[in-house]
């Protein structure tokens, strides 16, 4: 199985575990799209932005002494996007409608992020 296939399985598993998740994407830390399940919006641009958000989150953590960066949340009136660090090489972005079960989303997405990190560390 190729890395891409393995990653797509992780994304698929995440979406079926939490039906509230409307879309998810994986990008490299330099912003290249790896896998996504977006039905609207530009996945290339969003991948690049997720990577930048990850970097910004890391810097904020460093600056206030918050330790290792884990995730960002971006909430809008219609939806939310969660951005997780997935090892040193990738970022996981998860999009839901506003009002979802944040606890469950975090639980499943953090698990998915660590699976992604394992797959990538093995593959590269």
């Amino acid at each position: 199985m190729s890395i891409s296939e393995e990653l797509n399985i992780v994304l698929g598993g995440l979406r079926s575990a939490v039906p509230e998740i409307t879309a998810a994407l994986i990008a490299t830390t330099d912003g290249l799209p790896v896998a996504h399940s977006l039905s609207s919006g530009d996945p290339n641009r969003l991948s690049a932005m997720a990577a930048t958000a990850l970097g910004l989150g890391k810097r904020i953590c460093e600056t206030y002494g918050g330790g290792e960066f884990k995730e960002n949340t971006v909430s809008g009136s219609e939806g939310q996007m969660f951005i997780y660090s997935a090892g040193g090489k990738a970022v996981l972005g998860v999009i839901t409608k506003t009002g979802g079960n944040v606890g469950l989303i975090h639980l499943e997405a953090r698990d998915a992020a660590s699976k992604i990190a394992t797959i990538l560390n093995r593959g590269m």
Binding site: T29, D30, G31, R45, A48, M49, A51, T52, L54, G55, L56, K58, R59
Partner: peptide, 14 residues
């Protein structure tokens, strides 16, 4: 707009 330039370059940019 710098929002897409990627984490490392964005950190320097800030």
């Amino acid at each position: 707009d710098p929002s897409w330039i990627g984490s490392e370059f964005f950190s320097f940019w800030i």
